[in-house]
Design a protein around this nucleic acid. Structure first.
Length: 418
RNA sequence: GUGGCCAUAGCUCAGCUGGUAGAGCGCCUGACUGUGGAUCAGGUGGUCGUGGGUUCGAAUCCCACUGGCCACCCCA
């Protein structure tokens, strides 16, 4: 094979596309119901944008970015996530003048240079929502939307996990407590944890090896400042009001530096190692960090590939995006009336395939059957010389001769009854 | 970046201890000269992932590379 896909990428087509459209349709529908407008930002951004926002020390920046130098000598990166570009666009276009709050959603490809596995590719796709606003009500709304979309798609076997990692004011105290605690267990934890003890102490909490040690570790809740405690408590109350089931997990910390206070994840029960189908949190300092005004905000992203895996695991079938309704088979020199009939039907919103291969009638019927056409119109010289066509119901096999002038009404009527 | 398993027709796979490729499905044609789905018959289709090595001879053994899957790491 001469040319093949780049490692970690896939071609999406055919029946598979139905899954994608189901997710996109659910997203747009829910976005519309909650008043979110779509934003499309470039796929390439200055490298520095992600270094600043996601964090110099994160794995995403350290070893997962697709970065290259363009012909002008600029360092460019294929976006590894969607929040930083949205915030950049918000600042650059002075959207602050549009008033508050502001609500955005996006759908598109992201790129991370990782080793592919189940639920993980190098080019993957996310649906994301961002809400620029400060209150716990905003947090509840964002989680509400994520759950709503998943339900709209037809999923049910997932759970919402939430936590708060405090803010700049109270997190240092919490980190101290963790260091103190882990200093007594350093010889028991895994090598990764030993390394992160000094680089990123919070991450020791979600280590999968030393689960018991992490479970017994100090919890952020016990170190919150008054504001963080109030925010977190209020969020939980609001989620209950919205009838959203959630679990608290003090070990949930996220890998992006910009998060503070609320973080959450939605995990699917039937997936493998990569079971997080959505994740997000609050980022109150990010807008300022990127040179904008003080604008507290939060958001989340859902992994479309993972949602499709979840749909398949749960047996959720997306609706067929393309339904072949009418196939026009023709024999002989009859194109003028055939084209006219096809156009008349399409004007009524009916999907019409016209034979373009000049095959035998038998082959045309076979093709019509394969694409799932409900009705086949047989237009031959025999019929058209008498100004009629044959209309065949492909399910029952019933055929009727219909005057050309009544064919459209006849077919519309027949489709309605199917 | 690390580890395990894997790579034969469009798809799913067989091919035992080395003797130079097969099935099912699909696709095309015909039986049915202008009528799909069933059946039957015929046909199409592969430099056995790539490169090298061992051998008289390699799809089969060895090495490297590439790619795939799964897991680690990390994340959606």
């Amino acid at each position: 094979m001469k040319y093949t896909r780049i490692k970690g990428t896939v071609d999406i087509y055919g029946d598979e596309m139905d899954y994608w459209l189901a997710i996109e349709n659910a997203t747009r529908q829910v976005a519309n119901l909650f008043g979110y407008s779509e934003i499309r930002t470039p796929i390439i951004e200055p490298t520095e944008l992600f270094v600043r926002s996601v964090g110099q020390e994160t794995d995403m920046v350290q070893k997962e970015m697709y970065t290259f130098t363009d012909r002008g000598g600029r360092s460019i990166t294929l976006r590894p996530e969607g929040t930083a570009p949205v915030v950049r666009a918000f600042i650059e276009n002075s959207m602050i003048n549009l008033g508050f709050p502001q609500r955005f959603f996006y759908i598109g490809p992201m790129f991370r240079y990782e080793r592919p596995q189940k639920g993980r590719q190098r080019q993957f796709h996310q649906v994301g929502f961002e809400l620029l606003g400060p209150s716990p009500t905003a947090d509840a709304e964002i989680i509400h939307i994520a759950v709503r979309i998943l339900k709209e798609i037809g999923l049910s076997k997932f759970k919402v996990v939430i936590n708060s990692i405090g803010c700049d004011k109270c997190r240092p105290r919490y980190k101290e407590a963790l260091k103190e605690y882990y200093s007594h267990h350093l010889d028991e934890v895994c090598d990764d944890c030993k390394r992160r003890y000094s680089t990123n102490i919070l991450r020791l909490l979600d280590c999968k090896v030393d689960v018991e040690i992490a479970k017994a570790a100090p919890k952020s809740v016990d170190y919150f400042c008054d504001e963080c405690r109030e925010h977190y408590t209020r969020l939980k109350d609001l989620l209950k009001l919205l009838d959203i089931d959630f679990e608290e997990d003090h070990r949930l910390v996220r890998g992006l530096d910009y998060y503070n206070r609320t973080v959450f994840e939605i995990r699917h029960e039937l997936l493998g190692a990569q079971d997080a189908i959505a994740g997000g949190g609050r980022y109150d300092k990010l807008v300022e960090e990127l040179g904008g005004p003080h604008v507290p905000a939060l958001g989340f992203a859902m992994g479309m590939e993972r949602i499709i895996l979840a749909m398949k695991e749960e047996g959720v079938k997306p609706p067929e995006a393309l339904q072949h309704q009418v196939f026009i088979a023709h024999v002989g020199d009859v194109m003028e009336p055939v084209f006219r009939l096809a156009e008349d039907l399409r004007r009524e919103g009916i999907t019409v395939d016209v034979e373009v291969m000049e095959r035998s009638l038998r082959a045309q019927l076979k093709h019509a059957d394969r694409i799932g056409a409900r009705i086949v119109v047989i237009a031959g010289e025999n019929e058209l010389s008498r100004d009629v066509v044959v209309v065949r119901d492909m399910e029952s096999g019933e055929q009727s001769e219909v005057d050309l002038g009544f064919a459209v009404d006849f077919i519309i009527d027949k489709l309605k009854k199917m």
